[in-house]
Amino acid sequence: MTLSLGTKKAIDVGIYIFLMFMGAVSILVTAAIIWVLLVDTINFFTHPDGGGFPSSLIRFFTEREWTPTFYDKKIGIWPLINGTFMIAGISVLVAIPLGLAVAIYLSEYASWKVRESVKPWLDFLEAVPTVVYGYFALLFITPFLQKFFSLFGIEMEGMNALSPGIVIGVMILPFMASMVEDSLKGVPQYLREASYSLGASKLRTALFVVLPAAKSGILSAYLLGFSRAIGETMVVAVAAGMYPQITANPLEPVQTITGYIVQVALGDLPFNSFEYLSIFAVGMVLFIITLIFNSIAVYLKSKTVGY
C-alpha cells in the first residue's frame, strides 16, 4: 500500500494529536479526583446534619469523637487520624529496619545468583492481594499474638491495631526494599573502592559510605512506603476493627480513614446524604496527607546528588 506524501503527513498529525490527547487523559483523571473530592467535601461541610458551615469545619477539627453515622452526630476527625497514623507507624517500625537490612544485603552482600532468585519473589510479594493479607492478619497473626501476650497476662482484643500494622509492614517492605536497593545501586562503585582501599570492611563501607551517599533516595523510599501504609485499606478493614477512638494502645481496636470509607460504602448510601458525603470529606483528608508525603518524597529524590 502506497500512500501519498500528503496523506502520510495528515496521518502523522492525526496520530500526534491522538497520542497527546491520551496523555492528557491522565491530567483529566487527576482533575476529576480533585474536583469530586472538593465538591463533596464542600457539600459535607455545608450539610445541615453537620451544623452547616463554618461550625461543621470547627467541629471537624475540635471534636474528639467520630460518629457521623449515628443519630447523635460527632464529626471530629482525630480518632480516624489516630488510628491511621498508629497503624502506619507500627508498619514502618517493622518495614524500616527489615527493609534496610534486606536492601543492604541484596545490594552489597548477596551474590548475583542469590539476588536474581530472590527479586522475583519480592516482586510477587507486591502482587499478593491485600485482602489476602487481611485474612492472614485476622486469622493467623492476631490469634498468634493473643497467645503470645496471654503468656504475660496481657489481654489483646480480636480486633486491634498491632496485627494489621505488622502485616502492612511486611506488605510495604518489598516496595521499600527495592527502592532503597535502587538508590544504593546508584552510588558509584568508585566510592566503595576508595573505602575498601583505605582498609574499610564491607559493613563499614555500606554503613558509612554507601548509606550516607544514598540517603535522600532512602528517605524518599521510606516516605513513599509510609504513604502507602496510610492508604492501605483491606488489611485494616478486616483486622483493625470499626471503632474510631483516640488511643495509644495498639492492642485495642481502632478505625482508620480507609476503614471508615469501607464501612460506610458497604451499606447502602443514598446519593448526597450526610454519610455519603462524609466518606468524601475523609477521603480528601487522606488524599492531602498522602499528597504531602509523596511530594516530600519526590522533592528528596530530586535532591539526590549525582556523582
Partner: peptide, 23 residues
C-alpha cells in the same frame, strides 16, 4: 503529564474508588 502520572501512581486505591463512586 509526567509529574502528574507519578503522582497518580501514589494515590491510594480507595481514592480511585471515591472518584468512581462520585463520577
Amino acid at each position: 503529564i509526567e509529574a502528574n502520572i507519578s503522582n497518580l501512581a501514589a494515590v491510594p486505591s480507595i481514592v480511585y474508588g471515591l472518584l468512581a463512586l462520585g463520577v
